[in-house]
Structure formats: C-alpha cells, structure tokens
Design a protein around this nucleic acid. Structure first.
Lengths: 351, 351
DNA sequence: ATGAAAGCGCTAACAC
DNA sequence: GTGTTAGCGCTTTCAT
C-alpha cells in the first residue's frame, strides 16, 4: 500500500511564506521571537493553503500529542451502554471535554479500562504506548487507584482526577458530594422528615463516604438519629432493592430515602410499588443521578444534578494548562452539584 | 519542555530478540517471510518488555494511522447531549465501534462537523490533516453529502456510509428503513387500523423517503388510502406537534400514527394529551427510535429498534478490511431494524 | 528469510 | 529574531 502523504505540510507553508520551517513552527505554536510581520505572512500562507499540523508528526518530534484520554471503567460503561437506560455520563464527558479540547486543538479520546483486572497496568500501559496522551482524565473508581496514578505520573502524563481527593498531589475535581448529600438531606428535613434513609454507593468509591458524611452531618445538625438508616449498595438495581427493603421493611420504616445513584433510586420505586407505598405521599425519594429515567419518570424524581460536562471541561482546561506550566499543578477544583426538587419529595404523611 | 520518549520501542524489542528492526516490524504487522522460530522469539520479547507500537510513529512512516473517525452532525449531537433526554446514538456507535476497533488495535474517535456550514470542507480537511484517519464512518446527513464523500475519496480514506445508498460506490450500510416502516404499518394494519398517519423525517435525510415508501407500500398493499396522511417534520418536537395536530385535527383523524423519531413521537403524545386522546385506546403510536424515554415512558411505546451498535461494528470491520484489500470495496450491508411491540398500539376503538 | 538505509512531518537544541 | 541540524519510532524500499 502506498505511503499516504500529507497534502499540505509545514514545508509547503515555509516555502510559500519564504521562511524556514522553524519560523512556521513558531507561529503554529504561538512561540515568541517572531516579528509580527513574519507572523502575519506565515498566517496568511497557512490560511491560503489550508494547512493543519499533523498531530502524529507533532507527537513524534515534540512533547505534545494533543490527545487527552478520558478513562472510564470498562465493565460499568459497557453495561450502561447495553442497558440503554439513558445513563449519559460518557456523553456529558464528551460534551464538556470535546468542546473544550477543540478550543485548543486537542482531541478527546474515550478509553475503557477494567477496574478489577490484575493486569490493569498492562492495559493502561498499552493505551499510553499506543496513544501517548498528554493528559488523562480519571473517573471513579480509576481516579483513586494508586497504581494508575503512579503509572501515569511516571510517564509524565498530566492527570486530572474526578471524584477522588486522596492519592497525593495533582489536579483533583469534585462535585462536592458531601454538600450535595447535605442539600438533599436538608431538603427532606425541611419538609418535616425525621427518619431519612440513605442508600450508600459502593464503598470502593471514595465519594460514597463523602455522601454518607453529608447526610449524617445534616441529620445530626437537625438532631435526628441516623443509626441503622444507612444501607450499603454497589450501585446496582438489585442491591438497591435490598437496601430499600431493609429501610422500609422494619417496624419503623423511613419516610424518605436518598439513593446514591439512578439505579438504586429506581429500585426504591420498584420496592415502593410492591409495598403499595405511594411516592411522594408515603415515601419521599431523592436520586443522586439526574438521568432521563429519573427526570421523566412518574413521578419525576427530585435529584442531585452532577455537572459532569462542566467538570470535564475544567479538567481538560487544567490539563492543557498543566502542559504549559513548568511546575506541576496541585489543586482541588470544586464544581458543586445542585439539588433539583421535583415531584418525589413531599412532607411525610404524619409530618 | 523535555522530549518525551517512548519507554519501550521497536529497537528495544529488536535488541532483546537479537534481530533487526525490520523483523520485529514484520511480526507486529503479521507479514510473511518470517520463520516461525524468529516470530516466536520476537513475540516473546514483545510480551516480556510489554511493547506496544506507537500509533503516531506508525502513521508517520506507514500508510495506516489505526484511527477511525465517527463523523456526526455537530448541531444535532450537541443539542441531544444538552437536552439530556437519553438519545444514545453516539453511545451506541461507541459501543459497537470501540469494541470492534479494539479487536484490531484501532481506536474510534468521535468528531463533530457542521452540516450546514459553507466551510464544511475546511472543517473536514482540518480533521483529516490533524488525525489522518484510516477510515471515516459517516452518519446522516453527512453520509449522503457528495462533497464530503468526494473529499474523503480524494484523500484515500476508506468511507463507510450509514443511512445512504446514493452517492456512488463504496461501503453502504442501512437498517432497511423501508422494511422497518412497512413492519410498523403492517403491525397497525393487522390491529385493524385503516387511517394510519405518517410523520416523515427531515427531507434532507435520504432515509426519510425510504420510510415513507415503506409505509405507503404497506398501506396500498392493504388497500388503504394514503393521501393526506403523510406530514413532514424536521425531527424536532415542535415540528412533530404541528404534524400531529394536522393528522389528528381534521374531520377524519387518523387512528394511528408512525413517527419518524423519538422527538416527534413524544410530540404526538403531547398533542394527544391536549386533545384528551388516550394512547392506545383512542390513538395508536409507533416511534422510529427506541430511546429510553420511549421505552420507559407511560405508556411504553411500540418502537423500531435500530441496531446502531451492530451497524457501527460492521462499518468498522469493513473499513479495516478495506485497508487490507487492494481493490476498493463496493457493497451494501443491511442490518435490519426490528419492531418491538409495546403498550402504545392496540386495535382502534371502532375497529 | 533477513537486514540496512531512507524518510515520513514536525520540534528541540543550538547556531547565527 | 531566524535558520540549521538532528532525531522522534516506525515502515517502506531495496539489497543481500
């Protein structure tokens, strides 16, 4: 197969503008030490010839690949895609990430890695070797995986971690899950609920603990007991059902439940239906994911809206900035999630 | 900034195996003219060192970039992502496309291009120059854009077109929209409907006409009049409402409607609600998209399920095959969409 | 069947 | 400020 060559290269531009390759390169990369006259002349040639640098070539010689990898848990992501229930985590990452990337001539590329695999390092190394991304955006649970973080650092790849604060210095992003859980709890407390159950997410996720903290803080601030009102889940529908039955089945059933994601929230609705509990009359419900099923279901659920697009956009921006900066960035960025009240929360019956 | 180098390169493997670079390259690319002994020796070194070729370097020298671009309409895609109503077209493309790519060491990269822009060629040229993809998967309406197809052909990029048959030779994929529309119509005819309205999609889309054809064929085969029963839309909710009002507002309202996508189907539900028509008692409804809102709404809609993941997987496979083959491929692949009966279709009241 | 050499498009380092 | 040189990791071509 014939060698496929670039139609317009930096050489063409250099020839057309009557300057050296290096000057063109400097203009492309917005480097200093180019007279405005030259700069304009080169820019004109670029426009005229419709020149766009090859990112492969840029990567080969320079330090940048103009590629940012969005790393997601393979199993969960594929399961969501297959289920087709509208979970749009990846879409929101693309929305925020791709657009921000485009502003800077970068591309976002989605990559799936097994979380529980022994050879997670091998998998990741493969992706790194193949793509050589300038940066990686880690989502839970990868964002708290020390082996992953270490590996990326060793390869001098900028890392933005979403939903994890442990794990050393770097770029950390949270949606302030603790505050979000507090908001949800306070919303229910204000409606008059006292026995508010909490379905925690998988303990493998750092943010699961934050959410419990927020709920517990709110409960205690209001003088409510929280003992026995927190049930664990693994974010799955089935584990949500188990948790819901535990919270609703006892002698003192909760009058409200906060579920750590959409699946467990739907599970609560399912159990409530079985028990002939009406939402919100007999039971109030808050979902920690604002997915389509949650928003457009009957009743529409009060939910925590996580600004995933915004967080991803900021993560991309931070990575690009990190590339330019000499010193390694070390900061935490908070893009708070908000509460959207809908029809699933109301005062308790005997409130 | 320091030059960031590959940790394990083909050189390391060659040294470790005691062979030339060339032999390693041959093994990587599964080329002939390597003795089994050598091949195994090299494979062992690759495994041992965890070597993975750099796709940037592969692209620089060879003819392949191991990148496949999935091109989507920018405006529509971003609108869907922002609306957050669960449209999962891109997700399904990723599901089918990424996994198939992974099998062959390829990556799928999503790219958004304006459809109505004058400088669509410039945009596309930019993406081509930057990424130099081996292949591009075109979705409607790009898949029928002659300028786009021409441009890609000129750059020797394999093209797989989904949802377009016009536009010359190449790899064409359809979900047999005509048959799908026929299935939907026959389903309603069998239930006893005679006045079945059809909300067509945007006439800019080739497949909109196919669907009309399928519906019309079924109607005529059943001896039903179809005059005045087809209303145009642009796939938007508002245009769906207009179409629904036209079909339901006259003296002889239709007893069933087939809507060309989820938005127009939801619009029909909206209008039906306003007119106090019950679905399916007063009106049967079929949606041409099987999105979450359609599946989990109340009532759950009878829908055409489009195998987007499967089509994309096949498109990826065809592109990769096309790269290997000398002769250019020219064929049409049909991955038929199916009908999923749900609660929105029933015999007409006076049927 | 295997190896050596040239070059893809670009940038870092250094000269001027 | 600007140009020159070397080389990134790999594949192609050609020689052996």
């Amino acid at each position: 197969m014939a060698r496929r060559k670039q139609s317009v290269t930096i050489k063409h531009v250099a020839a057309d503008a009557g300057v050296s390759l290096q000057t063109v390169s400097r203009v492309i990369n917005k480097e200093p030490n180019v007279r405005p006259v030259m700069r304009e002349r080169v820019q004109a040639s670029i426009e005229k010839l419709g020149y766009v640098p090859s990112i492969a070539a840029q990567r080969m010689s320079g330090s940048r690949s103009y590629l940012i990898m969005a790393l997601n848990d393979r199993e969960r992501t594929i399961a969501d895609w297959r289920k087709r229930e509208g979970t749009d985590w990846v879409d929101q990452m693309l929305l925020g990430g791709m657009l921000k990337c485009a502003e800077h001539g970068y591309r976002l590329i989605v990559e799936l890695i097994d979380t529980h695999s022994d050879h997670i390092e091998r998998e990741l190394l493969g992706a790194i070797a193949a793509l050589q991304p300038d940066g990686v955006i880690l989502t839970p649970p990868h964002s708290q995986n020390q082996r992953v973080i270490e590996l990326l650092r060793k390869h001098q790849i900028s890392v933005a971690r979403i939903g994890s604060l442990d794990g050393g210095p770097g770029l950390r992003f949270t949606m302030d899950d603790e505050r979000a859980a507090r908001l949800a709890s306070e919303h229910l407390l204000q409606l008059g609920h006292r026995r508010i159950g909490f379905i925690a997410g998988s303990p493998e996720y750092e943010l699961s603990a934050w959410r419990i903290d927020g709920w517990r803080a709110a409960m205690r601030a209001a003088g409510c007991a929280d003992a026995g009102l927190c049930e664990e889940s693994d974010f799955s529908f089935e584990s949500g059902r188990r948790a819901a039955r535990a919270l609703l089945g006892g002698r003192q059933p909760t009058t409200a439940i906060i579920a750590s994601n959409d699946q467990t929230a739907l599970a609560v609705m399912d159990v409530a239906r079985e028990m002939e509990l009406s939402i919100p009359d007999d039971l109030s419900l808050v979902s920690f994911d604002d997915t389509p099923l949650v928003r457009f279901g009957d009743p529409a659920l009060t939910a925590i809206a996580q600004p995933i697009a915004e967080v991803t956009a900021q993560a991309v921006a931070a990575i690009i900035e990190d590339r330019k900066t000499q010193s390694e960035l070390d900061r935490t960025v908070v893009v708070p999630a908000g509460l959207i009240p809908r029809q699933s929360t109301a005062p308790p019956r005997n409130g």
